[in-house]
């Protein structure tokens, strides 16, 4: 049976003899040797909900990027987007696993004897109102410029968060952030280079990029709203208040925009629903459609082994 705090299964088969690979593999478990006990004074429910929020951001954007598979402008970009999607999926897996370990009551109940691990139960058996992702990651894919603009905004924000999260009082979150920083640095670099290329490429590429940015801009302020769970996690020394990284994120973005000759769009923030936002489980219709596609097979086979 799968223990809720067993992070090693993805690596178990890869950490043994890999001499048959020509280049060698040398995979590492990012959580090897990490203390998985919950730090004193931290409310496990707060830690779990905080991990779920960060994990859901990664999970949902990962799925949006996965939808690019086979559709990118060329083979190399197709693989690049798939790599980024896999990085985010890996972050989601570790964060959902941590959420389940901290507070098993957040994991949906499955039929007796189901072999589905806790992080899969969280990913595939929760409804949209239980997802805590920001709405920017769930809006449907547009063109390639939209994928680049969204990835630039998201990775710039998340990298700043993770830089601080690497000092988390929770050793697991700190390890996840330390691993994620390297990945997000690449994502931001990738998106930034393409942002520049599209902004200064042709009239058409620039028009598409500016359209995409304008479309995403109303969703941007939501990433810096402080949800009570984030405030509580920050106060307990395990999380980062997103409002606290707003200035540094804006400075980085300002540099990219200045280099690209792009102005910040002027658009009013997308309102919440009765004061509730993505972190509260109030989502756009796009998320339920995305989840319907992502979850249908797992839900049809709750005893399935994958």
């Amino acid at each position: 049976m799968h223990a809720p705090d067993d992070h090693e299964s993805a690596y178990a088969g890869l950490l043994v003899n890999d001499a048959h690979w020509a280049f060698g593999t040398d995979f590492e478990d990012p959580l090897a040797g990490v203390d998985t006990t919950i730090p004193d004074g931290v409310d496990p429910a707060v830690l779990a909900r905080y991990c779920l929020a960060l994990g859901d951001d990664a999970l949902v954007l990962s799925h949006r990027l996965t939808q690019w598979c086979g559709r990118a402008p060329d083979l190399e970009e197709d693989i690049a987007l798939a790599n980024i999607a896999l990085d985010l999926l890996g972050q989601a897996r570790l964060l959902l696993t941590r959420a389940a370990a901290a507070d098993p009551s957040c994991v949906p109940a499955l039929p007796e004897g189901s072999p589905v691990p806790a992080e899969d139960a969280l990913a595939y058996f929760r409804d949209d109102r239980d997802f805590g992702n920001v709405r920017m990651v769930e809006v449907p894919n547009g063109d390639f410029a939209e994928a680049i603009a969204r990835l630039l905004l998201f990775s710039t924000w998340r990298l700043a968060l993770f830089e601080h999260l690497a000092g988390s009082g929770d050793a697991v979150l700190a390890a996840v952030a330390a691993k994620g920083r390297k990945e997000l640095t690449y994502h931001r670099d990738f998106a930034g280079r393409w942002f520049l290329t599209l902004a200064q490429g042709t009239e058409e590429s620039r028009r598409r990029l500016l359209d995409a940015l304008a479309g995403l801009w109303p969703l941007w302020p939501e990433l810096f709203r402080t949800h009570p769970v984030e405030a509580a996690a920050a106060a307990a020394g395990v999380g980062v208040d997103p409002a606290s990284v707003a200035a540094e994120v804006d400075a980085v973005l300002g540099q990219v925009f200045a280099t690209c000759g792009v102005d910040r769009p002027e658009a009013a923030p997308l309102a919440g629903v009765a004061g509730r936002f993505g972190r509260d489980g109030a989502h756009t219709e796009a998320l339920s459609l995305l989840l319907a596609e992502m979850q249908v097979v797992a839900r049809a086979h709750p005893r399935g082994q994958w």
Partner: peptide, 23 residues
């Protein structure tokens, strides 16, 4: 692989040929 310039070629090479921890 194909790339627009040298810098993009390095990124593409990273994405296409080192994704299984080879390099």
């Amino acid at each position: 692989l194909h790339a627009a310039d040298d810098a993009m070629a390095v990124l593409h090479a990273r994405d296409v040929y080192t994704r299984r921890n080879e390099g």
